[in-house]
Structure formats: structure tokens, C-alpha cells
């Protein structure tokens, strides 16, 4: 099932192969000239600007008799497939590059990959039962991703930090990814919901609905949201 769902993400293998060939060629060239940070930044930006970064589930999948966990795994794997091969290409090119700190650079690229992987899982981890992630949540992840990638760019190209620190960060990232995946997996429902399970409070100023901002704080709602 998961394979078939992924195939819907990549219906044209020929097109995907051409896309990867072009991007990999560019990345490989950039990496050979020691612009590894630039390569990572380009890949991350491609990912963040693409819809994959913020896509979650679709009505097409949700309306079919497919367990929610299968949909979650398929979409996450499809997203990972859009970024992991590119990073692996960069890592493969590092031994041939002109950079003097090959080990630190490799570790930093792996760290960048894990940060982005964490972001991908994070898109799914909030309000898991809903079909789509809230817009503001996707924006937060996008902005944090942009900042993280910029910091990594500086770290990789200009001031590589000691290896043990990066390896520690990798360990933390791996654990964080696993924990977040486990949490999301366990809370994924059998069927995703089209809208929020709880009714929204009305935003009186804008006359539009907003999500509840203070679950568990009724006095705040009474005071400020005219509940």
C-alpha cells in the first residue's frame, strides 16, 4: 500500500530521473569546488520552496479505505525521497572536494539533513488527526528551517565547529527524529479529519474564525475572546 501511495507521488519515473540527474550534476559540481555550504543551502531552499515541505495529506487519500498510518508513512517517505538522495550526493562528493575539513563538513551536512528530516516529521506532528497542518505551523517550520540552513551554511563553509560537537548534535537529532516519528505514528488516526475537531472561536475583530488559542484556560477565553 505504501509503495502504491508513493507511486502516486512520483507517477513519472522518467521525469523524476531527469530532475534528479540535473540537480545531482549541479550539486556534485558545486561540491567539488568546495562550495558545500552553498550546495546544502540550495538543496534546502529547493525543498522549502517546494510544496513537499508543507504538504500533508489529501482528500483523495483520506476518502479511500486506507489506514491513516499508511498514508502518513507513504507521504513522509515520499518527502524524504525528495531530499535524501540529494544530500547523499553531496556527502559522496565531499571526499573529492577541495575542502580541508572533510570529516567536519561531512558531519555538518549529515546534521543539516537530519534537521530537515526533523522538520518534515514536525509538519505531521501537530494536530495529527487533521488532514492538513495549520498554515501558521507550516510557516513556523519553514522559517526555522531557513534560519537553520543559513547557520549551517556559515558553519560549513567558513567556520567548521569541532567534530565532537557536530557528532553530539547528530545524536540528538537522530533521537529527536525517532521520538517525534514515534509520537506522530502513535497518534495518527485511522481516518484523517477534514477540519478541526473542536469548533473555533470567532475572531470578532476580523470576523473570521480562528483556532482555539487557549485550550484549558476558560477564564482567558471569557475575558478576551467573548466566549
Amino acid at each position: 500500500m505504501i509503495y502504491r501511495l508513493i507511486k502516486f507521488e512520483y507517477p513519472s519515473w522518467k521525469g523524476v530521473a531527469i530532475f534528479y540527474a540535473v540537480v545531482l550534476g549541479c550539486l556534485f559540481s558545486a561540491t567539488l569546488f568546495a562550495h558545500i555550504g552553498t550546495s546544502v543551502t540550495v538543496v534546502a531552499l529547493l525543498f522549502l520552496l517546494g510544496t513537499r515541505a508543507v504538504g500533508r495529506n489529501t482528500m483523495f487519500e483520506a476518502a479511500l479505505p486506507i489506514p491513516g498510518r499508511d498514508i502518513f508513512c507513504a507521504r513522509l517517505l515520499a518527502n524524504l525521497l525528495s531530499i535524501w538522495p540529494l544530500f547523499l550526493a553531496i556527502i559522496t562528493a565531499i571526499p573529492f572536494s577541495r575542502t580541508e575539513t572533510k570529516a567536519q563538513t561531512t558531519a555538518a551536512v549529515i546534521e543539516a539533513l537530519l534537521v530537515i528530516t526533523f522538520g518534515m516529521i514536525a509538519v505531521y506532528s501537530f494536530r495529527v488527526e487533521e488532514l492538513k497542518a495549520p498554515r501558521w505551523w507550516k510557516q513556523i517550520i519553514g522559517w526555522i528551517g531557513m534560519i537553520a540552513v543559513s547557520v549551517l551554511f556559515i558553519q560549513i563553509d567558513f567556520d567548521p565547529i569541532p567534530l565532537f560537537l557536530t557528532i553530539s548534535a547528530i545524536g540528538i537529532c537522530v533521537l529527536a527524529c525517532m521520538a517525534l516519528f514515534w509520537k506522530t505514528w502513535n497518534s495518527t488516526p485511522q481516518s484523517f479529519q477534514r477540519g478541526p475537531t473542536e469548533p473555533a472561536l470567532r475572531d470578532l475583530a476580523l470576523e473570521r474564525s480562528v483556532y482555539p488559542r487557549s485550550r484549558g484556560c476558560p477564564s482567558y477565553e471569557r475575558s478576551f475572546l467573548h466566549k
Binding site: M59, F60, A63, I66
Partner: peptide, 28 residues
């Protein structure tokens, strides 16, 4: 709420805003 998959197996559904995967062919 508890058996959505079992129910959906027995239902044919055409949604108001049905979006099919555009890049696929009918055969797929």
C-alpha cells in the same frame, strides 16, 4: 469514528471538490 476503513470499503464516494492525482493516468 472507530471503523472508518471498514466503512469506506463498502462506500462509493464522489466528493464535491474531488481532486484526483493529476499526474496519474486513468489506468494507474
Amino acid at each position: 469514528a472507530t471503523d472508518p476503513v471498514a466503512i469506506k470499503k463498502r462506500i462509493g464516494y464522489v466528493a464535491e471538490d474531488q481532486v484526483l492525482p493529476g499526474a496519474s493516468s486513468i489506468a494507474e
